[in-house]
Amino acid sequence: MLQPKTYPRLLGQALTLEPAPFVEMTDDDNPWIEGLFFAFVIGLAVAVARLIGGLLLTASLPLPGSVLEAIVTALKQSLLGVAVNPAQAEALLRQMWPWITTLFDYGTGWLRLLVLVATPLLYIGQWLLYGLLCHLVARLLGGSGSVGQSLGVIALSLAPRVLLVAMVIPFVSVSGLLIHVWGILIAYRGLEVAHDLPPTKAAGAALAPLVLGAIVLFAVTFVSLTLASLTGGGT
């Protein structure tokens, strides 16, 4: 049964690596639904914070268009007498500028509202992928938990992302390393409880999806670069 009023307590207990929230999630009648809602609530909270933070950042800085023109002027001055084509550099900068501003939530477009939908969806997607892979590895290592229980406890590993709510204040930056390492520690504790695994195996189950992800990323990059070189980079 969904109990959002208990989320702040679950969140705090998960952050301090206590076993209680994992036991509670494992014993829940529908742990994966609880996990889904938990991921959605955190995603929405972060999205709202990012939206407000982006608006405040935009109001704290000059208009993006004026900043771009200033950078272009500086770039042209800097490139005088250098073997780089200023027109090409300017075109590249103008092409990349919308991406740069979107990345930092700096801009006045309506596009920023997308974050309200994209962030919860992204969190749910990450939770599902990571949770299912963790479950698979945990079962391979002799774990006894169900898929629902795995998804329930892995949802709690999203707890450190609540720190991203601080981004409601412009220029706050939360380290991705902190969010992910803390998340893995929570996932490790959760899998230990949900699957009744010894610490080493629980650590293996929590880390395996990341190792797998790194291998896949490396392989995809290597294959695409090889293909690009064989086909002449698409030119």
Binding site: L56, T58, A59, S60, L61, P62, L63, S66, V67, A70, T73, A74, L163, A166, I169, P170, F171, V172, S173, V174, S175, L178
Partner: peptide, 28 residues
């Protein structure tokens, strides 16, 4: 040039918000 462009928020508030952000970064 960028510093002289001005922004929608008053100078003291824009400066204060950014300094506050940097302050929050300490515990993080």
């Amino acid at each position: 040039t960028i510093a002289g462009m001005g922004q929608p928020l008053p100078d003291w508030l824009a400066g204060g918000l950014s300094a506050l952000g940097e302050w929050i970064n300490w515990p993080l």
